[in-house]
Amino acid sequence: MPSLVVRNLDESIINALKARAVAHHRSTEAEHRAILAEFLLSPQRKTFAEALANIPSVGIDSDFQRVNDNTMATNVFD
């Protein structure tokens, strides 16, 4: 299996990696592999702009117009 060497890392990054490894009950090397796999092999999340662009264009603007209602709503979240 190929190896990867990462040089000149800031000590704060190494300390964060070690702390994360301890939290996940893994070696530092295993944690490094898990982070790389999670980031590189996971499907990429869409940005908010991409999500909005993917909303289908349906209806007309008047279908979605806000109705002004001056009544006071109480206990909206109950």
Rank of each mutant, 00 (worst) to 15 (best):
D61E: 15
K46I: 07
R20K: 10
H24Q: 13
V76A: 11
A53H: 06
F48E: 07
K46R: 14
L52D: 02
T28A: 13
S62N: 10
D63V: 02
I35D: 02
N54G: 12
K18E: 15
I14D: 11
V6K: 00
L41E: 15
H32W: 11
I55M: 03
R33P: 01
D78Y: 00
S42M: 06
R66E: 07
N75A: 10
A16C: 03
I60W: 01
A53C: 04
R66D: 02
V76M: 09
V58Q: 12
M72C: 07
Q44K: 14
S27C: 05
A73S: 06
S57M: 07
T28E: 13
A37C: 07
N68V: 15
L9F: 04
A53F: 01
F64H: 05
S12A: 08
I55P: 02
V58I: 13
A21Q: 00
Q44W: 03
D63T: 00
R66C: 07
E31R: 05
A73Y: 07
A23V: 08
A30H: 06
M72Y: 12
P43G: 04
A73Q: 09
D78W: 01
N75K: 08
N70G: 14
T47G: 00
A21H: 01
D10E: 15
S62C: 02
V67G: 01
T47K: 01
R26K: 13
A21I: 00
